[in-house]
Design a protein around this nucleic acid. Structure first.
Lengths: 230, 230
DNA sequence: GATAGTTTCATACACACGTTTGAAATGCAA
DNA sequence: TTGCATTTCAAACGTGTGTATGAAACTATC
């Protein structure tokens, strides 16, 4: 294996191109040209185009999910096993929103890639997203601890709406900017997170406002992926 | 032109197939086989595959938007030029949710097609959706009349979140059902509409609950489309 | 420095796709 | 019927695609 140079070059080039032009418009030939490697290298290193896309998405997804769970764990420990519903919602939507809208450290190709993945929904990515349910159950469990009296269905709806608002904001940020003629500030990620959390909490509790929480971000460089799930 | 038989058969077959298998998996050859017409007929009648898809989507979109504006107008007239914010949100999300989730009259292929269009986001459909901004401005205007003191940005965010919740519910209804193990009832469209409206209103006003409104639906049979916009 | 394993490379394969073509069929008016 | 426009049809076109192949280059171990 030696240096992994080819492999990493393919991953980086693919992410860059997909981020810029979308999945539909990028061919393997585009990718290998951008990466300065041979066409056959993709199938040699990844097996197929779909597996390449899957690996890109899984890597980024894992990072986000890890962040989510870290925040959740931290919030629960700080609260002696029971986090506030605000903190839980924060852990749920914060990493995704910051990862896609935030000023992320090493250039925003990872962010733009995830936005694309959120918009275009190509088969290999859809397959991975469908496994996200287990991940979300951990949040439902935390919510149940935080709001013990609540009907479970209410918790699911609250979670669902929180994801709705964060994903839709990511997906349609251009449209919202255009519609509002710039009056909605899509650059202040912190404010957006607070806003989404506030509405989510209202949806769950039926009133009273929200409060604060910390900040982090996504996008590691690519290394070899130790095969695991989302 | 005679009977339009071929044209309509293509539209019906295409909508059925796209609804069932998605845009990515259906070729022109599949469509003409299903419609029992010749391959060249598609290009003869529609010019290209993309124009066929666009026509399908525009037809259904127009119906929904018409319904939205009708409800909005009715609400504003009933209120003497100023509708309640509940009624406005209702007019915004009701037709879409009923159109995609409701038990619609003539079989649900139109509904399933619109769900697909909401999930897959193929280029000709994206192009059409981008023109929807003008349509939404009418709702912003109504909201401004209904909540005169509010900052415009707040109105845009409220509208944005309302669309987020309704679209995400349509797009992810399967996942929500799975996640909640059936505890979230995705069949009771009326209840869903009320729920989305309630949260939207809370997002806009910061508290107090919502109230009721009427019901209608989409999905006309296909006739020739008098060329117009969304 | 020969050998075995890994990686790269140019090239070709196979084929599914949207579109085009030009002729045949059909419909319609005079 | 004749003539003209519309519509249908079978067939092919051309190209862009992911993938497969088999030889060459490289690397590391003994």
């Amino acid at each position: 294996m030696a240096s992994d140079h080819t492999r990493s070059a393919i991953l980086a080039a693919a992410e860059r191109l997909y981020a810029d032009r979308g999945f539909g418009d990028v061919t393997l030939r585009d990718i290998v040209a951008e990466a300065n490697v041979n066409l056959a290298a993709v199938n040699y290193h990844f097996g197929s185009k779909d597996e390449l896309i899957a690996e890109l998405f899984v890597t980024r997804s894992l990072a986000t999910n890890r962040e989510r769970l870290n925040e959740l764990k931290a919030a629960e420990e700080a609260g002696g096993g029971r986090a506030s519903i605000e903190a839980i919602m924060h852990a749920l939507v914060g990493p995704t929103l910051r990862g896609c809208l935030g000023p992320d450290r090493e250039g925003s190709t990872a962010a733009r890639f995830m936005i694309r993945a959120s918009i275009e929904s190509v088969p290999p990515i859809r397959r991975i997203k469908n496994r996200e349910v287990d991940h979300l159950r951990k949040f439902v469990a935390a919510m149940r601890r935080s709001l013990p009296g609540r009907d479970d269905a209410e918790l699911y709806w609250g979670l669902h709406f929180a994801l709705a608002m964060s994903h839709h904001t990511i997906r349609e940020k251009e449209r919202l900017t255009k519609l509002s003629e710039g009056q909605c500030d899509l650059n202040d990620v912190h404010a957006i997170v607070e806003r989404v959390v506030a509405v989510s909490v209202m949806a769950l509790t039926g009133g009273e406002p929200a409060r604060k929480a910390p900040a982090r971000s996504m996008a590691p460089p690519y290394g070899r992926l130790t095969r695991q799930d989302i």
